[in-house]
Computed example of a mutant assay.
Amino acid sequence: MTIENLKTNVKWWESKRWIFNIAVGLFGIYGIYDFLSTVDYEWTTEDTIGVIFWGIGANVFYSLGSLMELFDWYYFNNKIKITQGLRYLLLIGGILFSCFWTLWNTVIYFKTNYY
């Protein structure tokens, strides 16, 4: 793999980031709306800061996809071959995991702080 291939791989991951952000955001919004529509809850500044930090953290973990390709290229001499089709599996699996993790933690957060 050359530096140009690596740049192409990073560009591929970055071009899919908006899909990830929309999916995780929608699951988070659904989790928050589902809870707030059933109870009387006062939204606080801490809740807003938590949502912002959650979004930043989710994007840091999203970056692990391109980082895995870099590690495969640099340390393993492309033996894992992430670029050969495993990339889509990592993308879809990561999006699904992040969406359901976001929904699960939204439920846990509101149940422990409200009930």
Rank of each mutant, 00 (worst) to 15 (best):
G65Y: 06
Y33I: 11
S63V: 01
V51E: 07
L67S: 11
V60F: 08
F71P: 05
G85W: 00
I80F: 05
S98C: 04
L96T: 13
K81G: 04
V39I: 06
M68F: 10
Y41W: 01
L70F: 10
G50D: 06
R87W: 02
I32R: 04
T48W: 09
G25S: 01
V24W: 12
G93R: 05
Y75K: 07
F27I: 01
G93F: 05
G57W: 02
V60K: 02
W73Q: 14
T102V: 13
G65T: 03
F35L: 04
L67D: 05
W73K: 15
F61V: 10
S63P: 04
W43I: 14
E42S: 15
I29H: 02
Y30H: 00
N21T: 01
T45Q: 09
D40C: 04
F76E: 00
S63L: 01
D34P: 07
E42M: 07
L96A: 10
Y41L: 00
F76S: 03
S98K: 04
A58H: 03
G65K: 08
T48L: 14
I92M: 12
F53Y: 13
F97Y: 12
I82G: 12
S98I: 05
V39E: 02
G25K: 06
F100L: 09
E46Q: 11
Y62R: 14
T44P: 02
G94K: 13
I49H: 05
R17Q: 14
L26G: 06
I95P: 11
L91M: 15
K81A: 11
F76G: 00
L89F: 09
N59T: 13
D72M: 02
G85A: 11
L64W: 12
L70E: 02
I32G: 05
S66G: 15
V39H: 04
I95K: 14
V51C: 04
F61Y: 11
F53Q: 14
G85K: 05
Y33E: 15
S66I: 09
D47M: 12
I49Y: 15
M68L: 09
N21D: 03
L36E: 01
L96C: 15
L91H: 02
L70G: 00
K79R: 12
D72Y: 04
Q84Y: 12
N78I: 00
R87H: 15
A58T: 10
G85H: 02
W101A: 13
I52N: 08
I56P: 10
F61W: 08
N59C: 15
F53L: 08
W43E: 04
